[in-house]
Amino acid sequence: MLEARLEQAQILKKVVEAIKDLVQDCNFDCNDAGIQLQAMDNSHVALVSMKLGSEGFSPYRCDRNIALGINLNSLMKVLRAAANEDLLTLKAEDQPDSLNLLFESSSQDRLSEYDIKLMDIDQEHLGIPDTEYAATITLPSAEFQRICRDLSALSESVSIEANKDGVKFACSGDIGNGSVTLRPHTNVEDEDKSTKIELTEPVNLTFSLKYLVNFCKASSLSATVRLCLSNEVPLLVEYQMGAGYLRFYLAPKIGD
């Protein structure tokens, strides 16, 4: 059986909130290493990959591999009943029909318990190769969110060009064009506000802003975001969580 307790319900709430508009139904794959999820969006343009390692739970017990097929809108309806600071315990049998969620508020002596029905989901699983990216950019997640939001008002697409001088996000639309250039800098008072660029070769790729804006819904999970780029391969957008990560892969656009 599965029994996994999170110190704060908000971790799962934020993950589900961030991905529910990209993915409707998906399997949460549970094993002794933790809980993982991989799912493509309906258009097969983006891939979501999430890991919550067993060390992020206390206690964590999972005797055998269990796939929890869940409708994310249903899960979100239940998770909205949990306060951010509640303890959240997930429980399921070895061959479950439902997932049990228990929310505990220590301050109010309140216990809430919900069961949601599970579904059989036959999902295509993709193997993601280990990639040495040509450019890795670490920047404040709020900064990336702002850039995507501002440029999406002008255009459907953004080019991301990274070279030794910095990273330039540029777009062109019917009303005009715009760009934001970030140069590497270190904030000595708050490391999370720094921008770092690691580069082995210059890259220039174009992506759909609609998807990037969607990925930025994960910004509350982490103060920083990592963008990994290589020419002609999908962009990796990564938000680190305490004992895991939420990753988005986005296929590039080509031509006009």
Partner: peptide
């Protein structure tokens, strides 16, 4: 969308 590649073109189906 025009010119949009699919993710499955890059990652192997398991």
């Amino acid at each position: 969308e025009q010119g949009q590649l699919e993710i499955v073109q890059f990652f192997k189906s398991l």
